[in-house]
Design a protein around this nucleic acid. Structure first.
Lengths: 218, 218
DNA sequence: TCGGTAACTTACCCGAGGTAACTTACTGGC
DNA sequence: GCCAGTAAGTTACCTCGGGTAAGTTACCGA
């Protein structure tokens, strides 16, 4: 009844520690992070239980608390690690750029590649599916679809010769831009009218216009 | 001990129903939605408790469950209402547009005005502060700051004559666009390279280029 | 070989979401 | 005016998962 049994502990099939074994703090911590990321991605933050993460590590719950303090702390550690990785990858890619456009392009490809290969984790975050009930995330996505349906026809009418996939891409770009700008302008105390102007200016002329303006004025 | 006392029930000070009173289902439902939106905005979804929402309504917890089924259901109802409102406002504004650019501009102003005036609710959603621990939202925001610091200097170097606030605005636009595109391209199965191309094309030439291309090709 | 420490455990607490069963006030028909 | 029927409301409870206290065992260096 006391002490712990030496039961054979199966974590995920591909991982080796079939028999519960003591590990150094750092090793255990790395393992926990990896497992946590997986479980969070699988069920979403809310639905993920500390119990399950602990179990998959072949360890009991209090160990998680020993190392990460709380469920929030564990998520935070996952995020911090992922963020560092994303930053390293994109910054490295951009460092090879020869001119501004090239640098930007390299950065974008690195970014999209990273988010693509870590797709499960990023769906969890970018999407607010993380901490919100599934239905809520769905409702927000529906709001975006509505916006999509307001914007896409305009672009299509505007430039009839363009392919559907590009219309879609550009529509998504505008929607994403709007969301970020709406947040930014409350922080920076920018009026809705100015925000709309910046957005329109950018969407209309793009960086090319910015370049010309910038280098004429300068 | 049985039945409920006729204790004077104070909800929020500015609201009138000082004395607990029976209400029709629709009236109670509307009140609950309003209170819930406020409480969710105040504490975030996670930290908000059904108990508090019920209390502020001057009613007991099971009533909330009677009307909305669950905490998730309550949030969902709030979202659905807000989404409908946002859609109505922007669609109405756009209906008055005379040409594509004008329509887009009107839509943007309506959108930014709406999110600005409902700022508290939208911080809760747009930000993932909703269901995630505060520290986690902070960590994601930090990731965006890193991206900002990668992109802004390029734009500044690229167009030296442009004001700082515009650089900031454009940087945020690009960041928002990237997030949305990264999600979109996993759904539509677009390669990172194509995604980068769409993004760059849009950012470089903007809609103007799209227009010219579209109407020459057509 | 032996003690100290760091990796681990069991067994518990508590708070918040959620529910069953019961009570009370309003409503329309006689 | 009275009296059912029902819709609005209640209390008292359950459960599950995050979080903790106190104790146990394996490893390592002297």
């Amino acid at each position: 009844m006391v002490g712990y049994s030496t039961v054979t502990q199966t974590t995920s099939p591909q991982e080796r520690p079939a028999r519960r074994k003591r590990m150094s703090r750092e090793a255990r911590e790395r393992q926990m992070l990896a497992v946590a990321e997986e479980v969070f991605a699988d069920h979403g933050y809310r639905a993920a239980s500390m119990e399950e993460i602990a179990e998959r590590c072949g360890v009991s719950k209090p160990m998680l608390y020993e190392y990460f303090g709380s469920k929030d702390g564990l998520l935070l550690a996952c995020l911090t690690r992922a963020r560092a990785e994303l930053h390293d990858v994109t910054a490295a890619a951009m460092a090879e750029g020869t001119d501004p456009m090239d640098t930007l392009t390299r950065g974008l490809i690195a970014y999209y590649s990273f988010t693509d290969s870590h797709r499960r984790s990023f769906e969890l975050l970018k999407n607010e599916a993380a901490g919100l009930p599934y239905a809520a995330a769905e409702a927000v996505e529906e709001a975006r679809r509505q916006q999509h349906n307001l914007i896409a026809p305009i672009l299509a009418q505007w430039a009839p010769g363009i392919g559907d996939i590009e219309i879609e891409a550009y529509t998504e770009i505008i929607i994403g831009a709007c969301e970020r700008v709406s947040l930014w302008c409350t922080v920076r105390d920018v009026t809705p009218e100015d925000a709309a102007r910046y957005t329109i200016d950018f969407c209309w002329g793009g960086l090319q216009a910015l370049y010309e303006r910038g280098n004429v004025t300068a």
